[in-house]
Structure formats: structure tokens, C-alpha cells
């Protein structure tokens, strides 16, 4: 049938594609490149002028800007490290337990553990802020009950703990996603492979380490890159819990909050869309590098394991 249509222009193909392509191009792709372009301009006397790479020179060279940028980038990197070291292993462990055969109530556990993931950052940020607050006293009270009161600190208010605390809150919220994805990957492992392992005497924990883990490596790769993109693009939790100034003393400032303050302005600082675009371009570069490392470095190698 398709061959019969061929001589005519097939307008319906264009009609089917047009709405999606138009909206996507106009609202996503065009602004993306326009932002990269705006990073090369600046505003002088209310006029937009071309300045080339000047904004980037300011961002990386000027002490006030570059300190803030590297601080935000380092904080963001730490944010990502905590997610990789805490969120993903817990997610994998929970998935491994959930996927064990004949476990009762597993649907209930799955749904319950996933609940934090569906809450908004505003709820999560404030809820934890209240719970950890020294005024309310839930956290100190509970530590007191188990005789560990000396461990209590106003975690969100101390420069040295605030970022780690917020990262752990974010881990608490998002552990459901790696759990679900790994759970799905574990269920898709064919029974024959596990049975073959059993015949060779590989059961229990060693079956997990020797058979299942290598087989779910591709899923772990996907989760890592999803975590990477989400973390280097995060904003809401920090904003909801610590405000746009990412206190105390910028110790929880990440690239998202830094970009927001710069381009939108905050309190006494005036918004500068061009510097904001420069930061956005840097974020774009970082995310692109991460995704490319995954696509060309990690994913190819992991493919060897697939069957």
C-alpha cells in the first residue's frame, strides 16, 4: 500500500509529525541554543552587545564569580557522590530483597517505599527542616530516647553538615527509583541461568554477587546517568529548604541555585540573563560530558554482558 502512495506527497505524515516537532523545537530546542547564544552577549546601557567569550572569562577568571562557580560545582559534585554511594546501593539492596521469591507483602513494601518519590520537594524540604529543627525537637528527642543525644547537631544550620544532610534527604526521597528499575532488571533474569548456577552450587549471596549483579550492570549504568543528569540540574530541594541564597553561607549552593540567583536576581542582586546563560551553558557542557561518557564509554562495554 505504501508503494501506491509514493508518487503523491504524503501530507498525513507531515500532519502527524507537525504538532510535536513544532512545540518541541519552539519551546525546547530553540531556547536551548538561544541560551547558548545569549551567553556570548552582554548588556551595556540597556543595549545588547556581542562580547564573545567575555562572560566565560568573567565566570572562570573573576575572583568573585569563579569562587562562587567552583563552590557550586564542588558542592554539586559532592551531592552526586552521596547519591551514588548511598542512594544506589540502598536501592539495589532493597530491590534484591524485594525480588526474592515467595516474599509476602512485597507489593506493599514497594508502594510504601516509593511514596517519598512522589512528594514535591517543597513538602520534603520543609518536612525535614521541621523534623531536624532544634526548636521542635523531634530529632534530638529521638536520639535522646536511644541515648545518643550527644550526636545531635542542628545539621541544616551548620556549614560543615548542611550539604551532606540535604543530599541524604534527597537520597531518602529518590531511593524508590533505583529500587524499581533494579527490581525490574532482577525479575527479567531468566530462571534457567539461576538454576544452572544452583546446580553448580552457587546460591544465596554468592548467586547475587556472581550471577545477578553482572547481569544488572546495564541498569546500574542507566541509573547512574539518570542520577547524574538529575543532580547537576537540581534546584528545588535546596531552594525549598535553604532559600535562593543556599545558606548557611552558600555551603549548599549548587549550580541550579547559582544560576537562578544570577539570572533572576535575588534580594539586592540584580538579575543578569547573560551571566545566567553562561552558567547554563557550563551546566549544559557538564551534562553533555556526563552523558557522552555514559553513551560512548560505559554503555558500549556493558553491552557485552547482555544476552
Amino acid at each position: 500500500m505504501a508503494a501506491a502512495d509514493k508518487p503523491k506527497t504524503r501530507w498525513h505524515v507531515a500532519v502527524f509529525l507537525a504538532p510535536a516537532v513544532l512545540v518541541y523545537t519552539a519551546v525546547m530546542i530553540y531556547p536551548l541554543f538561544n541560551t547558548l547564544r545569549l551567553a556570548l552577549y552582554s548588556e551595556v546601557d540597556q543595549e545588547r552587545i556581542w562580547v564573545g567569550l567575555q562572560n566565560f572569562r568573567t565566570l572562570f577568571g573573576d575572583a568573585i564569580w569563579s569562587d562562587q562557580f567552583w563552590n557550586a560545582l564542588a558542592n554539586n559534585a559532592w551531592f552526586f557522590v552521596i547519591h551514588m554511594l548511598v542512594q544506589n546501593p540502598i536501592g539495589i539492596a532493597l530491590a534484591a530483597i524485594l525480588s526474592s521469591p515467595r516474599l509476602r507483602f512485597s507489593a506493599f513494601y514497594r508502594s510504601a517505599i516509593f511514596i517519598p518519590t512522589i512528594l514535591s520537594f517543597v513538602i520534603v524540604g520543609f518536612a525535614w527542616k521541621l523534623i531536624l529543627s532544634p526548636i521542635w525537637g523531634i530529632a534530638p528527642g529521638m536520639l535522646d530516647a536511644v541515648g545518643l543525644k550527644f550526636l545531635y547537631q542542628p545539621w541544616l544550620g551548620k556549614e560543615e553538615y548542611a550539604l551532606t544532610t540535604l543530599s541524604l534527604v534527597s537520597v531518602w526521597q529518590y531511593v524508590g527509583i533505583p529500587m524499581m528499575l533494579i527490581y525490574a532488571a532482577l525479575l527479567s533474569i531468566p530462571d534457567e541461568i539461576l538454576e544452572a548456577g544452583e546446580c553448580d552450587g552457587i546460591t544465596g549471596m554468592s548467586a547475587f554477587w556472581k550471577i545477578k549483579l553482572p547481569l544488572i550492570l546495564p541498569s546500574i549504568g542507566i541509573i547512574s546517568v539518570l542520577t547524574f543528569v538529575a543532580n547537576f540540574n537540581a534546584f528545588d530541594l535546596i531552594y525549598a529548604a535553604q532559600g535562593a541564597l543556599a545558606g548557611p553561607d552558600f555551603s549548599t549552593d549548587i549550580l541550579g541555585t547559582f544560576m537562578y540567583r544570577t539570572f533572576f536576581g535575588f534580594q539586592l542582586q540584580l538579575g543578569d540573563p547573560h551571566m545566567g546563560s553562561a552558567i547554563a551553558s557550563a551546566m549544559f557542557g557538564i551534562i553533555l560530558i556526563g552523558v557522552c561518557i555514559y553513551l560512548f564509554g560505559i554503555q558500549r562495554r556493558l553491552r557485552n554482558y547482555q544476552f
Binding site: 510535536a20 516537532v21 530546542i29 530553540y30 531556547p31 538561544n34 540540574n233
Partner: peptide, 24 residues
């Protein structure tokens, strides 16, 4: 090519383009 073009947005967050979106 069209499929790849549309798939680009899966990995690249739309927030990066916020400055230009606001301007638009």
C-alpha cells in the same frame, strides 16, 4: 534522523534553556 532529534530531549533537561524561554 527525526527520531534521534526528538530523542535528544530525553537526556538534556529543558531547564538549561530557561533564560531564553523566559525571554520568549
Amino acid at each position: 534522523l527525526m527520531g534521534l532529534y526528538l530523542a535528544l530531549g530525553i537526556m538534556i533537561p529543558i531547564r538549561i534553556g530557561t533564560v531564553a524561554i523566559l525571554e520568549m
